[in-house]
């Protein structure tokens, strides 16, 4: 038996499904594009020296926009704007929401009351509207758009982590640790948190797509990235102004779509690899 086939046999069932493979390939491609954009892009994404609104062709695969910029190059560079920010956003939501939720679930009482009140407050509003209001209140900039999405994204992590921690807290090995004199913090750090990270990472993967959509949505509405920046949402927005030149809005839109789909496929796969009970626990999501 060759080494390759043995390794393939060990891959969990869920990972061998076509959607998982497609999602993985697309996500990986975008990550490479984000890193290598300067090497891959044929033109400067900001230079305005090309013919304006040229349709897609051999010189400009995705055409040019109304200021004479190469859209293919701008889409590639856009990966450097959107993907790192989205990942940062999700990591921060996991840390903030996860930590607050873990404390709420473990310590209960007023900690729980306080954290969950704030989470419920956020849940009470439609996500997109609340993100818009927060972004508008902070002032239109990409950083503020990230903050706005963070405000609406953390509660779902808090809620899920809280539930998982409350279930874990009663487990016998956690009790054994407490009987051996573990402080609450030590118990949380050593016994509880390492056993709830799996489902939370799945939730985070599922959320990458949604967070990107929300972030570029804010830019589309003029509440995020500002014009010369090759941010995908802002590019779609400017493409809408020149509706007849369909390529201006379509290609950045497709970029958003593929990233969102890829991470949803990946997240679904990861979720199916979890046991059914935990999978159900993280299905309750707000975003």
């Amino acid at each position: 038996m060759s080494r390759l086939s043995r390794r393939r046999r060990r891959l969990p069932e869920a990972w061998r499904r076509p959607l998982a493979v497609v999602g993985g390939v697309i996500a990986l491609t975008w990550l490479i594009v984000a890193v290598a954009a300067p090497l891959l892009a044929p033109y400067d994404p900001l230079a305005q020296e090309l013919p304006r609104l040229a349709p897609p062709g051999p010189d400009h695969w995705f055409g040019t926009d109304q200021l004479g910029r190469d859209i293919f190059s701008r889409v590639l560079y856009g990966a450097r704007v959107s993907i790192p920010l989205t990942l940062l956003l999700v990591v921060l939501s996991v840390l903030i929401g996860g930590l607050l939720g873990a404390c709420a679930g473990y310590f209960g009482r007023w900690v729980d009351e306080t954290v969950m009140r704030f989470a419920d407050l956020v849940f009470a509003f439609p996500t997109v509207i609340l993100a818009m209001v927060v972004a508008a209140a902070l002032g239109a900039s990409l950083t503020n758009a990230v903050l706005a999405v963070l405000v609406v994204a953390w509660p779902s992590y808090a809620r899920v982590t809280r539930g998982l921690v409350m279930g874990m807290r009663e487990r016998e090995f956690v009790l054994s640790g407490r009987l051996l004199g573990f402080s609450a913090w030590r118990s949380l750090r050593l016994d509880v948190l390492p056993n709830v990270t799996g489902p939370i990472l799945v939730l985070a993967t599922l959320d990458i797509g949604t967070a990107l959509l929300l972030l570029s949505g804010l830019s589309f509405l003029g509440l995020g990235a500002k014009p010369p920046s090759p941010e995908w949402g802002a590019m779609v927005s400017s493409g809408v102004e020149v509706f007849d030149s369909w390529w201006v809005a379509t290609f950045p839109g497709l970029a958003i779509l593929t990233v969102v789909l890829a991470f949803n496929f990946l997240g679904d796969t990861l979720r199916d690899a979890l046991d059914p009970r935990t999978a159900r626990a993280i299905k309750v999501r707000a975003l």
Binding site: F107, E172, F173, L175, S176, R178
Partner: peptide, 27 residues
């Protein structure tokens, strides 16, 4: 036992639980 550490004088009571599959930290 609340949220504080267990009092020293009680560390002399230890327990082995019923379910072998949840009595040890899997991680």
């Amino acid at each position: 036992l609340g949220l504080r550490r267990r009092h020293r004088s009680l560390l002399g009571i230890q327990m082995v639980f019923q379910d072998p599959y949840s009595s040890l930290n899997p991680r």
